Amino acid sequence: MVFLGNTGTMGVPFETVLAAAQSNAPWASATLWREYAPSVVGFARGRGSRDPEDLASEVFLTVFGTLSTFIGTESEFRSYLFSIAYRRLVDELRQRSRRGESVQWEPENDLRSEPSAEVVSDLRSSDESVLALFDILPVDQRNVMVLRIVSDLTIEQIAEVLDKSPGAVKSLQKRALDALRKKVSTKPYPFRPMERLPV
């Protein structure tokens, strides 16, 4: 992978950025943050973190604190990064389940009221509705799908993050996709009449 360097030119290889970050070069640490933080935030949001940006900050504090001991390729760095993100998320979810949650009431989040047709239509087409589909999946399948789709990790990287074999990850992904296909095929599609229009 090639990054933008501190001069704003293309062509800085990952190994160079990593070595500079391990030597505490601010530009290199900032480059790693810009490159990977959005994926970590997306993963945390997709798995239900209450504050995905805060979780990503905690992950990078840990990464930068231990970076001097890391040896590996860009792919191995992604696995390392998401292993830390996964552990932080598990910690957050455990704390919330122990403490229970108190959420401030907001009318738009009140499940007792029926949303308008416009709101339903907007939800169906939003990223949140896609992520909400993952909520029907068991936890292992949900983890695999969020890491695969939101964080764009390979099967091998996901296997490392979740401490599973690549075969187990493939099996979880297949079961998740089968479950999602069944769920989506039974939901009414808001634009179905348009399918009958001539091309």
Rank of each mutant, 00 (worst) to 15 (best):
A44M: 00
R148K: 09
E114L: 10
G100A: 03
E101L: 01
G100D: 01
E76H: 04
V2E: 14
L89W: 08
S151T: 10
S125I: 13
S75Y: 00
F3Y: 15
R96Q: 03
T9Y: 15
V184E: 08
V120M: 15
D51V: 01
D163L: 13
V90P: 08
L81Y: 09
L55M: 10
V41C: 01
Q157L: 02
V63R: 08
L4R: 14
S165D: 12
G42H: 01
R142S: 09
P52I: 05
A132T: 00
F43Q: 08
K174G: 06
S83G: 15
S121F: 13
D163Y: 07
V2P: 00
Y36E: 04
V17R: 02
V17I: 14
E74C: 07
F134W: 12
F191M: 12
S171R: 13
S151K: 08
G65S: 13
F77C: 05
S151I: 07
L81V: 07
V130R: 14
S29N: 03
G11A: 07
F43I: 09
V17P: 04
N109L: 13
V146E: 02
F77M: 04
R112T: 12
D178K: 07
E160I: 05
S29M: 10
V139N: 09
G46Y: 00
K187A: 11
G48P: 02
E74I: 02
A85G: 04
A117Y: 09
T16A: 06
D91L: 11
R78L: 03
R175L: 08
Y80N: 10
S185T: 02
S97K: 01
E108Q: 12
S121G: 15
L61I: 11
E106T: 09
A28W: 06
R96K: 09
E106M: 10
S102R: 02
L4D: 06
V90E: 15
E74T: 00
L153F: 11
K183E: 15
P38S: 02
Q173H: 11
M10T: 12
E53Y: 04
A56M: 14
L180Q: 12
A179H: 10
L89D: 05
Y86H: 15
L137Q: 01
R47E: 10
V184T: 03
P107I: 08
L162P: 03
F191R: 05
S23V: 06
A25G: 04
G167W: 02
S113P: 00
D91S: 11
L137D: 03
